[in-house]
């Protein structure tokens, strides 16, 4: 494979921007660049026939057992779908365009299923991060209580609690609040489209 037939691009998409990420991959495929591997913000394409493949993102949580994953992957293979990349909890699906689309265009149920999966995953992630945060803070407070006669330890714990603790909490909020909000709006919009509220 010659070097000019390989293209490596950097792109950043948050978990809430999976639709934009899908569009990006499909645009590349239409221009003849087929996704072959995925890493952190990194996409590797190989030159191929323009419009031969279409792409879609799916989520399979890392916490799922190997059997569940294997059974799902086998099922996808049977459906003519190849998993071309895996990154964290995402899998990148490739299908021949001539075999038809991944699902009905504008299928609200399918979209809701996908975004709900991502939304609950994001909420769980934030809860887990908060749990870790609380655990670390509790350890530090406990340490302060136990070592209250040691000024060095007191200062260290105070420093960590006030600087690192607060800044990581702020970082958590800045990163995750917009993502959760965006996903929640998507979920609500789709629920409205289905007509549950009618």
């Amino acid at each position: 494979m010659e070097k000019k037939d390989i293209k490596k691009l950097w792109r950043f998409y948050t978990i809430a921007d999976y639709e934009r990420e899908e569009s990006f991959l499909n645009e590349m495929a239409r221009a003849g660049w087929n996704l072959t591997a995925v890493g952190f913000c990194r996409y590797i394409f190989r030159r191929g026939n323009a419009g031969e493949f279409i792409y879609k993102l799916d989520m399979v949580e890392r916490t799922e057992s190997d059997e569940v994953k294997e059974s799902y992957f086998n099922f996808l293979t049977d459906c003519g779908i190849r998993v071309v990349g895996e990154f964290k909890d995402w899998i990148y699906l490739q299908k021949r365009a001539s075999d038809g689309p991944f699902d009905t265009k504008n299928n609200t149920y399918a979209k809701l299923r996908q975004v709900n999966k991502i939304y609950s995953f994001s909420l769980r992630t934030v809860c887990n991060l908060l749990r870790i945060f609380v655990a670390i803070m509790l350890v530090l407070v406990l340490l302060q209580v136990l070592m209250s006669n040691n000024a060095g330890v007191m200062d260290f714990c105070n420093g960590v609690i006030y600087s690192l603790g607060i800044s990581s909490l702020i970082a958590l909020a800045i990163i995750w609040v917009p993502i959760i909000n965006k996903l929640r709006r998507k979920v609500n919009k789709l629920i409205e489209d289905i007509g549950v509220n009618l």
Partner: peptide
């Protein structure tokens, strides 16, 4: 029928209007 057969049968019966995604069908 197996999974892929269901997808094809659905597309045929509905004249291509309903296409089940693999994820939907699996779930």
């Amino acid at each position: 029928m197996h999974g892929y057969g269901i997808m094809q049968q659905t597309a045929t019966l509905s004249k291509g209007r309903v296409r089940l995604s693999a994820g939907t069908l699996y779930g």
